[in-house]
Design a protein around this nucleic acid. Structure first.
Lengths: 234, 234
DNA sequence: TAGATTGTTAATCGATTAACAATC
DNA sequence: TAGATTGTTAATCGATTAACAATC
């Protein structure tokens, strides 16, 4: 699907680090988008008992080139040793700090249909530092049911749920028709990041970061290449 | 999540159209990725009875700038009229032809856990030209159950299911640990496009197009901006 | 030391934006 | 015609790649 960036995309290029940490340089959006993949590989290597790695090994695991990996890391600092490589645990920690993964973020999910249900139950979120703290749905038949240990709340409770749990991220898994209203409500409730699965462009104020996943669009992009290769469909 | 492109990404830039149709020019990957969004907006406008639109209106609906929209369309041909705008139905058809959406593509889903179940039941796929024709799972407790009108088949049947239904696209919704094996099996069975939700880099041969959605990575990217804004987590 | 591998620089490449001539 | 809006060109910008000096 489609990965749409708004909010920070409006900035001219890179993203300003916080309090002069790292190397004081900005981190380009394309680099930020690859950092989670590096952390994932490093944690996997660490679990396998690997102590030191190289840009070649790490890049292969993440599906990028060694040059790109080193370039990406250079925006964060100098965490390797020439002639030696990278300490797996240390590099993992440094990237995690840069990404802000040392604090657990709280997430609310709006729209507990098939997809919302799957996301609420997705164990990888917890493994990677996120806590699902609230579920919201507009359907009275769904409200009150328990999903993944949480009782689904009505739409009217959205603001209270976000506030009470101090959630900073909202996931929209509703039908497209109501996605903008949900988005607006989430922003009003105070979230600063939104991940939407609804197939519709959403508008958010500049201080809110929006990412969009459109699985049907992803298939259509695959169809384009299928089409080009096989010549069907024209 | 993360949108990873392999296969065609290896080409130097743009994508060769099929038999000299459109304008004979290549379509850049970034443009291809936006075309589904334009079709979505055009179909919505059409349903609302709108006959003619402008680059301004269409771009607003898709969340891009008018200049970018016109630039994107210029790779497909000249389908507008200066001073007037675009015929909604005609432009929608032209982009659909370029994307190869005039032929229905057949999709198999591997991994019928929470996410696979949600995808199998996702009505938007059918609305946008895809038919889910096979469901595969490795769990004997899941095999034989009916999901979205299809009986889940065992892993051993993967190749037969792909062949019998002539599926060209595979969706991987399995745990990360088995994703590469499933990917390899799908390629061997003959699919030419793969959409994976497993948080792991996958390798495919050059003729296969791979797109990857990693929802946990998407949240981590949001966390980065949250972190930069609030200063927490360092 | 010699070999290995990083971090950085410079060059290339692709994508976006702005402006405007073409033309309906 | 006058006004509107496209399609395209040129300029800018950001991302990627390659090469290599630095240095462990």
């Amino acid at each position: 699907m489609d990965t749409q960036r708004t909010g920070p995309r409006a900035r001219t290029g890179a993203v300003e680090p916080g309090a002069g940490r790292s190397r004081g340089r900005d981190v380009p959006p394309a680099t930020v988008a690859r950092l989670p993949g590096y952390v994932r590989v490093l944690r996997s290597l660490s679990q396998d008992g690997v102590v030191t790695t190289s840009s070649e090994e790490l890049a292969a695991g993440a599906g990028v080139t060694p040059a790109q990996l080193r370039k990406d890391l250079s925006f964060l600092g100098s965490y390797g040793r020439r002639g030696v490589g990278y300490d797996v645990v240390h590099l993992s920690e440094q990237i995690s700090v840069a990404l802000g993964l040392t604090t657990q973020r709280r997430v609310v999910i709006v729209g507990i249909g098939n997809l919302g249900h799957a996301l609420a139950s997705y164990s990888v979120f917890a493994e990677r530092g996120f806590a699902v703290v609230g579920l919201i749905d507009a359907d009275p038949a769904v409200v009150g049911t328990t999903v993944a240990g949480l009782v689904v709340q009505p739409s009217s409770a959205l603001s209270d749920v976000v506030s009470a749990a101090d959630a900073t991220i909202g996931i929209i898994a509703t039908p497209a028709a109501v996605a903008q209203d949900v988005c607006t409500a989430l922003v009003a409730a105070g979230v600063v990041g939104i991940l939407t699965f609804a197939p519709r462009a959403l508008r958010v104020p500049p201080h809110v970061d929006l990412r969009a996943v459109d699985v049907a669009s992803e298939l259509q992009i695959l169809a384009f290449h299928d089409h080009r290769r096989t010549g069907t469909g024209a």
